[in-house]
Design a protein around this nucleic acid. Structure first.
Lengths: 205, 205
DNA sequence: CCATAAAATGAGATTACTCTCATATTTGAG
DNA sequence: CTCAAATATGAGAGTAATCTCATTTTATGG
């Protein structure tokens, strides 16, 4: 099995850290294959090549490991995005870049898409974390006069839903280069840009 | 317990029809309360005031009854919509009317919202049925020069996702009069109308 | 290489559900 | 009212999962 994200994080740690990470990585794979609801403890330990009892030396129950996986991946993604976006001032370009890069990341790590979708659905805390970024960029756009919307939780749900559609399309239909562009364009339209401007900006991603 | 949709359909039928409908109505209530995945046979029979074994006199398993419930409700909704829309020619107004009425219906029958959301997620056949209507109205709008989009399954997913956001908001936040208007406006924007026109049309719902 | 601490194991107790079926009850036609 | 057909019942067999814990295996510092 390929080295997973959590294993990489844990290189240098002792055996305890390595086994723990093996369980986390196995969970990512199982969630991607069967979905969060259908994931069983035994699936996880089997995927990690461990006995079922070992699980309980590290986590108290399934929810705990699922939350930890979700946070770990959300953190990894947001770190990557933060880095690339620190220099962008224009709000519309920030939204386009964040969206496009987000989708690209999940093309490189398809399992993450499953985990993030599952998290958005089942773990409200994770969703709220993601929304903080989204909200601040959209508010900036309104201040800059680029977007014409009222920034409400409902609007954030709409934007997040469009990103979710892209992740799902990517999971089912395989990589599709037009997908990120199309999603950016739709989000900009939703935020109140004219269709023409939205198209131009989305193409420049 | 209040008389459910399926009971109403079955008035006049014999005992067999009535028990069957009681199970279908009970399923709607349980799915609304716990979600499709978490719905157990025993929940259904208890809610219907029947013994667990009775279930198997009518359905072979949980999937069968879930599908039947989903189709029954999708059918009820689409019948109501069809009726009200038959006279509308303008595609943009068709989209606005369908969306707004759809949301109104699920405000009147909140349990239906849960069932429809669950169906969209778990029953691709039901989703495809709903998409047929959506697609034809959007295509009409493109022909009429009102919409500026390429009509792909991906676009339909996006539109459906925006409707889904409205249903979820309505479930969690309670009835909210601005919700339908806001959703219509977003969908029109997504379809390539100018923000100004989208606003005007959405307000006229 | 030993002794001890840390980690892993997997059998089995427990819980929760699905589905079957022999039996009991209800219905309604004559 | 009677009786056969239709319907409802719920105990229990089968299955699948969670979680515990006494035991075994492995790692490590001396």
């Amino acid at each position: 099995m390929r080295q997973g994200h959590f294993q990489e994080q844990a290189t240098g740690g002792g055996k305890r850290e390595r086994t723990r990470s093996a369980l986390l990585d196995a969970t990512v794979a199982v969630v991607a294959a069967k979905g969060m609801e259908a994931t069983k403890i035994l699936d996880i330990t089997e995927a990690a090549g461990l006995a079922n009892g070992t699980f309980y030396n590290y986590f108290t129950d399934k929810d705990e490991i699922l939350r930890e996986v979700a946070y770990g991946i959300a953190l990894a993604v947001s770190r990557q995005l933060d880095e690339e976006m620190s220099s962008i001032e224009d709000a519309a370009r920030r939204v386009v870049t964040a969206t496009a890069r987000f989708i690209e990341i999940t093309i490189a790590e398809p399992d993450w898409a499953h985990v993030l979708l599952g998290s958005a659905e089942h773990l409200p805390e994770v969703r709220r974390d993601i929304y903080r970024y989204l909200r601040s960029d959209i508010e900036r756009g309104v201040e800059q006069g680029k977007f014409d919307v009222e920034v409400t939780p409902f609007l954030l749900d709409q934007v997040a839903a469009l990103i979710g559609v892209a992740l799902r399309a990517q999971i089912h239909g395989g990589r599709n280069p037009g997908l990120a562009r199309q999603t950016c364009e739709s989000i900009l339209r939703l935020l109140g840009m004219s269709p023409a401007k939205a198209r131009k900006l989305a193409s420049a991603a």
